[in-house]
């Protein structure tokens, strides 16, 4: 009798325990956005795409001056030229993307069922190049960042719409990105969340730490400290170095998954890229 009860109990409890450990992106999203909305009640959801400017008047004033002559305008123009330039085989980037690549940046990173991997926009651009006989470009800056800047500009204002399909590989990638985001690493022992959740909105020296909510929405972006336009991956590399950890490879699964998780957390917020930051 006792044994039967134990068996019954364990049968009943097992699916529950499993359910608790299953990734639940939709619930995470609600909790994540809710956390920031509750913590900073004066900042409306859509305003998070403006990152640090919600938290510092002096930075906001500087920004307003800067975007009168947006420093990323050249990147967008160069990116459009590159985007429209034919490959040796006569095709263009438009042939690789739905809707000719216009107004689709908000759907990236995208899970690719064929390879079982996450494909951020930069990787998709490189895939298009390789498929058309061209060499891969650097995923951090330069021509690829310019193309990304142009493509993102055609999605300006569209709500971010990253999908985690009911595919165990997609869920695993999402979960890996989440774990990377919250895991401390490097000699300084910081996680992404240490600065961009826990200390979000506070000052690290003179700089405001941007909340993770909205953070991906304005990439690629012009950073004054870079002096040019860079991608989200470039920022990942910079952050890893800042916590005194060796960065991952630009096209690593770790960074793809991290971008997947972070961008999913921004679902519903408007694309505001390319952006400008101090």
């Amino acid at each position: 009798m006792k044994l039967a009860l134990i068996v019954l109990a364990s049968l009943w409890a097992a699916p529950l325990a499993q359910a608790a450990s299953q990734p639940d992106p939709a619930a995470d999203l609600q909790g994540f956005q809710g956390y920031f909305l509750k913590r900073f009640p004066k900042v409306p959801l859509a305003a998070y795409v403006n990152g640090p400017y919600n938290f510092s008047k002096s930075e906001r004033d500087q920004w307003k001056q800067i975007i009168e002559f947006p420093p990323y305008a050249f990147a967008v123009a160069d990116g459009k030229t590159l985007f429209d330039t034919k490959f040796a085989n006569g095709k263009t980037y438009a042939s690789c993307f739905p809707n000719g690549g216009i107004g689709i940046a908000q759907t990236y990173p995208m899970f690719d069922a064929k390879t079982g991997r996450v494909v951020p926009l930069g990787v998709a651009i490189n895939r298009c190049r390789v498929a058309n006989g061209a060499a891969k470009l650097s995923l951090t800056t330069g021509k690829l960042a310019d193309i990304e800047a142009y493509m993102t500009s055609t999605s300006d204002g569209k709500p971010i719409d990253v999908v985690v399909p009911h595919d165990p590989r997609a869920l695993a990638a999402y979960q890996a990105g989440k774990e990377y985001f919250y895991s401390r690493r490097g000699q300084l022992n910081f996680s992404c969340a240490s600065c961009h959740v826990q200390a979000a909105g506070m000052h690290l020296r003179g700089d405001v730490l941007a909340p993770a909510l909205g953070l991906t929405a304005s990439f690629p972006l012009y950073r004054s400290s870079w002096g040019d336009v860079g991608t989200l991956v470039r920022r990942f590399i910079g952050c890893n170095k800042k916590v005194k950890a060796e960065p991952e490879a630009a096209d690593s699964t770790a960074y793809r998954d991290l971008a997947y998780f972070m961008t999913y957390m921004n679902n519903g917020l408007p694309i505001a890229g390319p952006g400008a930051r101090p």
Binding site: A199, M202, H203, L204, R205, G206, L209
Partner: peptide, 15 residues
């Protein structure tokens, strides 16, 4: 001073 303000610190943080 990246995180702590103390007298004499230049551009100190407030974490």
């Amino acid at each position: 001073d990246a995180c702590h303000m103390f007298q004499g610190a230049d551009e100190a943080g407030n974490i």
